[in-house]
């Protein structure tokens, strides 16, 4: 064998080894201390891994990537902003969980009718025992509402109830009607009946009473809360319920085919005015109802849920 032959053989073999081994080695080194999370649409498996285990107080480094379409990543009930998870690209984030417990992580960009199934769990273990959190149960449970029961309101409106108009009668309104407790546990239709029966308001016309109902709603919201509710609705609800709440979102046909029911139409007064904030809270938190409505409980904070509920009435009030 001549020297050239030997040299070329050495070149070829080392070259092939480098080309094949170097990326694999580099990947193994780069993978130390990080968790690679792959997102796929729910139909192809959702998140991998779907359970991440971590020590309380220890930072975890996540490398997020999508294997198909655009996804997003956020931790439920947390203030950490969502990040985009792009196909074939990597988003790195570092998270630290101080308290042991179970956290949900979820996809934030709609990736098909089953987008909401794209969820995972972060189990945080630590020294301190996972104490059952002493939180009060949500209002709909305290009120023992049957959130699956139909709740039609038989109301007739001459025009859209207007909180600004309602404000001019607010001097007549007994203060008890403005408390959050009252507002949250009564549907607008019930509030209307209560106000109508109240001797203090006997002088008002029906449409004025409705304006007062809208006023009670607006008094229990803030502009920031409504804006947050609008953002949450656009990001999470509009794909099925429609951007104007009409129950005709881009996936409504899928929902109808699957569940035999269309998504709730918030522009229908009978539906929205018959639902109390607590009832809407229950539907949002628990979901289900055999309609393909996801359970948002693990994802939204208490405040976010109420912001969203407050926003839903904008489809009836102004």
């Amino acid at each position: 064998m001549k020297r050239t032959e030997l040299l070329s053989r050495i070149l070829v073999i080392t070259g092939i080894l480098i080309v094949l081994a170097a990326p694999i080695a580099a990947r193994a080194i780069g993978a130390q201390g990080v968790i690679e999370v792959h997102g796929r649409i729910a139909e192809s498996g959702g998140w991998t891994p779907s359970t991440i285990r971590v020590q309380a107080g220890m930072p975890i480094h996540l490398r997020l990537t999508s294997d198909d379409v655009m996804h997003g990543f956020a931790i439920g009930q947390s203030d950490t902003p969502a990040v985009d998870v792009l196909p074939g690209q990597v988003t790195e984030i570092t998270l630290t969980f101080d308290k042991p417990g179970t956290y949900a992580y979820y996809c934030t960009r709609w990736c098909g009718p089953n987008h909401w199934r794209m969820r995972g769990i972060i189990e945080v273990t630590g020294e301190e025992p996972v104490s059952p959190q002493v939180t009060t149960p949500p209002l709909y449970l305290m009120l023992n509402l049957d959130i699956d029961a139909p709740h039609p309101a038989s109301v007739t409106l001459d025009r859209i109830p207007d909180a600004q108009y309602g404000e001019q009668f607010s001097a007549l309104l007994p203060a008890a009607y403005l408390t959050p407790d009252y507002y949250r546990s009564h549907s607008p239709a019930q509030i209307y009946l209560d106000l109508r029966a109240d001797p203090a308001l006997v002088s008002l016309a029906g449409s004025d009473i409705w304006d007062l109902v809208a006023y009670i709603w607006l008094s229990n919201t803030t502009p920031e809360g409504l804006a947050e509710g609008q953002r949450l609705f656009a990001q999470n609800c509009a794909a099925c319920h429609g951007e104007t709440g009409g129950g005709n979102g881009v996936f409504s046909a899928n929902i109808t085919a699957l569940a035999g029911k269309t998504p709730a139409n918030f522009s229908d007064p009978a539906i929205t005015l018959g639902a109390s904030p607590a009832l809407l809270q229950g539907k949002i938190l628990r979901g289900g109802m055999g309609t393909g409505m996801p359970s948002w409980g693990p994802l939204f904070t208490d405040q976010q849920t109420w912001d969203l509920v407050g926003f839903l009435y904008t489809f009836q009030f102004k």
């Binding site: 649409i41 655009m70 960009r109 709609w110 990736c111 099925c240 951007e243 881009v250």
Partner: peptide, 24 residues
């Protein structure tokens, strides 16, 4: 209007682009 996943639109010649999520 996206009806399944996030899509976008880049218009040649005008150099304009938008992206749309389903529901947005």
């Amino acid at each position: 209007v996206s009806t399944d996943v996030v899509h976008g639109m880049f218009l040649d010649g005008y150099g304009l682009s938008v992206t749309a999520d389903p529901g947005q």
